[in-house]
């Protein structure tokens, strides 16, 4: 055995020259997974998370500039007895909504896409409640707020107006009550 190992850089520090052969075997990993690389990824993650909110705020800004809603005729009041409901579309053709004449005689309207996963909700006159059959979500018919099941947010409220026996939709509120 020679005392000088020509390849081992730390050969002089050890008496066992075979020990030095495993020195720096993981050099590649050391270069890749180190403290500096970790901090850089952390910065990248932080920036990615922060900037991921940008598309939402752009959409929100577009929403702020949205024009006011029109007044749209829904149905004649005498065609909608108490305990019945009728589907209409407001404010666009893609927003189904439900006008409900409750058993107590109130008129209320909500967009009927469930706030859980967008299934249509129905009015259940027997229990005087709005029901989403998909996952058994229940909404209070008087204010549109969820009372049972998975939905967490209230149904968007459609503002209505009765004029000469005709019910009109005049606006929409997302957060109410």
């Amino acid at each position: 055995m020679t005392k000088e190992c020509p390849k081992g850089r730390k050969a002089k520090q050890s008496k066992e020259d075979m020990v030095n052969l495993i020195d720096n075997v993981e050099q590649k990993d050391d270069l890749k997974y180190n403290r500096r690389a970790f901090l850089k990824s952390a910065v990248g993650a932080s920036m990615a998370l922060g900037l991921a909110t940008v598309p939402f705020s752009v959409r929100a800004m577009m929403g702020l500039a949205e024009p006011d809603h029109d007044r749209v005729e829904i149905v004649r009041l005498d065609q909608l007895p108490e305990g019945e409901s009728v589907t209409f579309y407001y404010p666009t053709e893609n927003d189904p909504a439900l006008l409900i004449h409750t058993v107590e005689g109130n008129l209320v309207a909500y967009n009927s896409a469930c706030t859980h996963l967008m299934c249509p909700v129905f009015y259940q006159a027997e229990k005087d409640v709005l029901l989403c059959p998909c996952h058994k979500g229940y909404f209070d018919v008087n204010d549109g707020h969820p009372i049972e099941g998975p939905p967490q947010r209230e149904l968007p409220l459609i503002e209505i107006e009765v004029d000469n026996g005709v019910v009109y939709a005049t606006g929409r509120q997302y957060r109410h009550g």
């Binding site: 991921a52 959409r59 929100a60 800004m61 929403g63 957060r175």
Partner: peptide
């Protein structure tokens, strides 16, 4: 929840 002002606030903080 269509709370547009809050979207802008939170997203501003994020940026």
């Amino acid at each position: 929840g269509r709370d547009n002002e809050f979207v802008l606030i939170y997203s501003g903080i994020g940026i």
